[in-house]
Design a protein around this nucleic acid. Sequence first.
DNA 1: TCGCTTGCTGAACGATCGTATAACAAGCCC
DNA 2: GGGCTTGTTATACGATCGTTCAGCAAGCGA
Lengths: 201, 201
Amino acid sequence: MASQPAFRRSDPDQRRASLIAACARVLAREGAAGASVRAIALEAGVSPGLIGHHFGGVDTLIAATYAQVEEQVAEALDRAVAAAGPDPRARLEAYVTASLLPPIADSELLSTWIAFWSLVRARSEIARLHDEQYSRFRAGLEALLIENGAQPAALRRIAIAVTALVDGLWLELCLSPQTFAEGEAAAIARDSLPALISTGR
Amino acid sequence: MASQPAFRRSDPDQRRASLIAACARVLAREGAAGASVRAIALEAGVSPGLIGHHFGGVDTLIAATYAQVEEQVAEALDRAVAAAGPDPRARLEAYVTASLLPPIADSELLSTWIAFWSLVRARSEIARLHDEQYSRFRAGLEALLIENGAQPAALRRIAIAVTALVDGLWLELCLSPQTFAEGEAAAIARDSLPALISTGR
DNA sequence: TCGCTTGCTGAACGATCGTATAACAAGCCC
DNA sequence: GGGCTTGTTATACGATCGTTCAGCAAGCGA
């Protein structure tokens, strides 16, 4: 009688991806405080030591998880814009409202993000990741604003304002969803767009 | 030779206030991860057991700290409005920009707030505190918006948008201050106000 | 001055944390 | 099929976590 293998070897890249996914699930379910080496390893169905083997430490794994979640959000926004068609106004609205609708407006995603924020001040490479993500979002927004006739001289100011509006709505939407009616946050952002774009004219 | 007392007894309320202040300092300096019973007790110059004696557990102490910091922020905003004089527009601008200038725009304060956010999903009494704080801020804003001629029908929408704008700017300002020039965030918020108020007219 | 209340200390407990490491074994190569 | 690489496990270690509690002592009232 042949006993089945006690474990399966995996390609290092695949295993790392599996651990990142498990880390994201634990962060979402239990928050930053619950994202221990053992909890993540249990979630991934491996032994605790494997995290050290592949990532060196749990902080590196969390940073890698940040990078991947961030990437997924950016891709979701790009898809939303692409699905909006050619109309510049529709593309801008899609970019702005996509953050305030599922799957990005998700209170579980907030737990992940808070875990990252709590590391920004302590770890400089996390701070760098955050700055990159913020810059990327604002750059994408500025491109769409130009399509919509925003004044170049006011571009930075408008982009910062719209980004802040979206971030603030997203934060409150995730923290206490019952504050808003279905789609209300997205509607508020959409309705505020023309006013913010026209500032400085 | 009379030896000086090994410790001083304190009025329970004063001692609790001292522990809350120490908790706030530790949260600001070391973040949520570093706010352990021992660290807070060391900061306050007392023994670890005293926290359990006065608060039952460290979570209760953190919740009490939330309530107190929130109170201080609200008072600072009220003072800013009072100092702005009688002009409605100046009062509204003071309320909005005060959050984006020292001492409220402080990256140490962000650490404190992140610690609270990380508890919102796990502990319902923290969630309730958050909702109260958000409602209070928005109510204060709505009163000022009425003074400035905002349409009652659009009041809720405008107040939510302005609150989100301020929160988003505050968050990014605390996370990476080097993104903004001195006073830039406050200026952006101030310049965006008339546009947001006029939506719905 | 004595006793009593109680704020307070400090040690101890069990649980859990992150990490290191030696042994094991899966699976490819020759 | 035997050897070798290395992904993986399991254990152990020291540190630190939150909480408990028996006892000390500060300071007030009688």
